[in-house]
Design a protein around this nucleic acid. Sequence first.
DNA 1: CGGATTTGACCGGCGC
DNA 2: GCGCCGGTCAAATCCG
Length: 273
Amino acid sequence: MSDELSAKLYPDHQDPDSFPFTTNDSPNSYYFHENYQQQELGFLDAPPFMNFSDFSDQNQLINEITHPPETPNSSFSCSSNDEESDKRDKLKAIKESENEDCNSNKGGKMKKKIEKKEKEPRVAFMTESEIDHLEDGYRWRKYGQKAVKNSPYPRSYYKCTTQKCTVKKRVERSFQDPSTVITTYEGHHNHPVPATMRGHVAGIFSHSLQFKPSSSFQIPNLHDQDLFHLNYVNNNAATNPQSIINSLANQQQISDYGLLQDLVPSILFKQEP
DNA sequence: CGGATTTGACCGGCGC
DNA sequence: GCGCCGGTCAAATCCG
């Protein structure tokens, strides 16, 4: 994301890794927001009650910046346009030349070329919930917690407890909208949902709404696992006892739709390494 | 008692 | 080189 976009979206927010992602070194960040926008406009077969109004200002802003009025709003595809790929090529060239300078360190010892650790794909979900760590079907071990700059809410770090699975997730409450929790998954599980959780999943899925990608809008490389997370967290939030109690307090009638109306989260975007 | 969580220390990347 | 910051480690502590 450009500094300009970042500054307009979050004037007081300095944390580069919080939502939305603002990786300085990745030319893909712009692309993520195309996804974000695309999703808002119809990636998911969202039910009619789904309310994106909370994000409409952001999306409008993103739309303005990424597609200025004089530039035709080309498409919602995730492929980059020529101008954008030019920018990426240039950035790539700069990075490569920088690497060369660094590695050919005149007269000195030949520094072993250290490959930059490849980033795992990341997927972020924003969920309206009072509970920070939402049940998502997998087992996690907390390994750290840090204060988030310019936010009163800490960020928690979790690892999947299954052996040889390197998936991590970060959970933090949005400082802009404290009613929402931002969950970021990094990597993909190399194993099925733990057996002890499967019954739970089946029970939840049997009676409730599920998201699926629409035929007209696709985010490339969106794994089934990501939709699983979305469905699981969504449905779990909707069936969380405290959520139901809260909902009861606010609504006259309870229906599946009525409950979900206040609780459904939205997938925001996906970040590729 | 064993697994999970807490929390201060530590590390590496980055900007100045 | 130094300080800042995000992310991770690991010893101490908690808790069922």
